[in-house]
Write a protein that binds this DNA or RNA. Sequence first.
DNA 1: TTATCATTGTAACATATTGATACAATATAA
DNA 2: TTATATTGTATCAATATGTTACAATGATAA
Lengths: 243, 243
Amino acid sequence: MDQEFKKQETNPTGTGYLPGIAIDAVIFGFHKNELKVLLLTYKNTGFFALPGGFVHEDEDMNQAARRILLHRTGLKDIFLEQFYTFGDKSRHDTEPLKKIMAARGFFPGDNHWLLSRFVSVGYYALVDFTKALPTPDSISDSCEWFNLTDLPRLMQDHEHILAKALQTIQQDLDHKLIGFNLLPQQFTMGELQGLYETILNKKLIRAAFQRKMLGLGILERIAKKWTGGAHKAPYLYRFIPVT
Amino acid sequence: MDQEFKKQETNPTGTGYLPGIAIDAVIFGFHKNELKVLLLTYKNTGFFALPGGFVHEDEDMNQAARRILLHRTGLKDIFLEQFYTFGDKSRHDTEPLKKIMAARGFFPGDNHWLLSRFVSVGYYALVDFTKALPTPDSISDSCEWFNLTDLPRLMQDHEHILAKALQTIQQDLDHKLIGFNLLPQQFTMGELQGLYETILNKKLIRAAFQRKMLGLGILERIAKKWTGGAHKAPYLYRFIPVT
DNA sequence: TTATCATTGTAACATATTGATACAATATAA
DNA sequence: TTATATTGTATCAATATGTTACAATGATAA
């Protein structure tokens, strides 16, 4: 499946793909109290970009998003949600893509399908940082986690897409309990609170947070964690999915 | 602009439009404690459908949605939000469209662009029922308000799109204060509560509702309404947009 | 004119939720 | 053993919401 881009590149009319529709994925992870995003670098260009792709003629758009995710993180069964579709005409900027292709020794004609105007459907994914294995493909020399607090300049309108994704998970954090998808199966209350604080970018009250989370009735207390800290050991919790 | 569909129909390759991308609009209104939706009927077919259209090559997608809205309701400056993009391959069902075109005496070739697979971007609009003027165009013999509680069968996956739109406004009702867009400039507390109850499909407590709404600090009390009811006249309120 | 009626606006109290503080419990390090 | 930092939870305060009640009032009909 590393051949996907070659297939797109050497196929000037885009046969087999839905025309004019791209998918961009904002893949969030969480580690050491920092929110992370998965970004690609394109070979010999220094461009940073969100992982993305196109929809096959014979697949649902949501399937396509999962396929892209699988290739980037090696993970199936991921929490994945569509959040917005970006359709401004100002998005149509062919220069970056031309440079990426040129860096690969490929010089497409002006009406190559990849150079036409695209509408991009944004998805965000929440993955367990400890399990995801970022994998660059044939056109990117890296696929890495970046701290949200320390991002490079992104290609095209990808910074805008990322900002909208972040805003979406902030709004949905409480209601959809999406936060749990960013943690490993077992976690302490402190880690959970740290996650919430990082996403919402504000301090929460420890006692109230713990009371509320336990009150939801979706956490199971497992065992004591034995830590290296010079203090009382916290419990480990596990998320109980609704039956 | 009534010529829009003719332009689409007699243009087998879809020149001037973004390929494969449609817009469907769920236009909500509110009258006499009933939620309404604007639906089209296509001539000589009996098909009911959400108003929709396509994106011009030289316009933003959100602009296109506003253009479509303007043609259907005669209203500018409407509350309009994108809520989801529908991309299942099962959406690709050409039969209804073929019948619509056939009823107009037009028989497109199998690779007419309108018969290809489309991804549809859903928008919902909230309009003041007393101001909107539904206007059918050349291909529809009607464009009318329907009660949400008494809908006909809709074309393709339009029922699904409508359901998702309703779900969205239910979720956003409190947070975005979107309800006010469905009422005329002046309204009574009872009307506002009726609107909330209709959208959320549940009874609210009158005293608590009034207290909360007034507590938001976004309502201005204007004057007494002099009604025909045999009871105390309610105040009229006006929504104060945030400065 | 007056009594009746339905509905409005709001007060008053009860209950529930969240904020703030305090403190015992305890795992490690010295 | 003692010092220390953090956890789990109790307690009270503040705020928000649910519930009940009642005076005010604008038609309607006697």
